[in-house]
């Protein structure tokens, strides 16, 4: 089964991981901008990072037949530095028309502070003015519930934000319904220690239905598993769920969401296969 990993930080993964993902049926990865493992000291640090995301990373993916897409922002961890954040937000438009850019992300909250909220709102303003889609990070562990509610408050307050063009990530049992009920897309991150497991993600699909739900691996600096989406596929199959339901969550839903970005030019393998077959 072809699948899409809608949230994976490939800059922190090896080229061997691309090969493994390709062998498992991954055809598209989408990589939101995030923390580099250290706080960057200047706007040029971000400019170089965006250069890496939009050029080198997509070439690395392409050599395994995977399409690489990306989202740009200054992440919540570094948003504590408001003046640097403003410089980065002012610089982002330089990159928005680059091939493979899907929108603004992953913006959000980390510790739910005033500075994080300020920078989040300024990112929303940029996305609204440039008509970009939005990908949102929600906090971990004890801060997740409060942070998710605050994020939804800010999104719902801004009439320019279209919920159908906004993805709220890292949802779990206590936040998923708040997100879906407000009309947003919701992403479940499969992560060994914090966040969700493949079995709990399958439970959530059973309880909430597949509409506007995505699964991703995060694949970042932490002890994450880049092949977590195939683990979810296996769990769903083991429970006897139909291939069409599984495919909807791991392929059709992300495809439908990404197709709303003007930077998304992916041609599904079936479509190109069908064209080739007709040509013969």
């Amino acid at each position: 089964m072809y699948y899409i990993d809608p949230h994976i930080h490939m800059v922190s993964r090896t080229t061997d991981d691309y090969e493994t993902l390709a062998k498992m049926g991954c055809v598209v990865v989408s990589e939101p901008a995030f923390w580099a493992g250290y706080d960057r000291g200047s706007v040029d640090g971000f400019r170089d990072y965006f250069e890496q995301l939009t050029t080198f990373e997509s070439r690395r993916a392409q050599s395994y037949g995977i399409r690489h897409y990306t989202w740009l922002c200054i992440n919540a961890k570094e948003a504590e530095n408001v003046s640097l954040s403003r410089e980065v937000i002012a610089m982002i438009p330089e990159f928005l028309d680059r091939p493979g850019v899907l929108g603004i992300g992953e913006i959000g909250l980390n510790k739910n502070t005033k500075n994080e909220a300020t920078v989040f709102l300024e990112h929303l303003d940029l996305a609204a003015k440039t008509d970009e889609q939005i990908l949102i990070h929600t906090p971990h562990l004890e801060d997740k519930y409060q942070g998710t509610r605050m994020i939804l408050d800010m999104l719902n307050d801004d009439r320019r934000i279209d919920p159908t063009r906004t993805l709220v990530d890292h949802v779990e049992e206590h936040t998923v319904r708040h997100v879906l009920d407000s009309g947003f897309w919701a992403g479940m991150t499969l992560y060994p220690v914090s966040k969700c497991t493949p079995a709990r993600a399958a439970d959530i699909v059973e309880m909430c239905g597949p509409e506007r739900l995505l699964v991703n691996s995060a694949g970042d600096w932490g002890p994450s598993k880049p092949t977590a989406v195939p683990d979810f596929i296996l769990e769903m199959r083991r429970r006897g769920h139909s291939e069409s339901l599984i495919r909807r969550v791991v392929y059709e839903n992300p495809l439908q969401f990404f197709q709303q970005s003007r930077g998304f030019d992916f041609e599904p393998p079936e479509a190109s296969g069908a064209t080739a077959a007709t040509a013969i």
Binding site: L141, E142, D143, K144, Y145, Q146, R149, M150, E172, E173, H174
Partner: peptide, 9 residues
């Protein structure tokens, strides 16, 4: 989950 969460204000 709610038990391990800070309350929303």
């Amino acid at each position: 989950q709610m038990l391990f969460s800070r309350p929303y204000n």
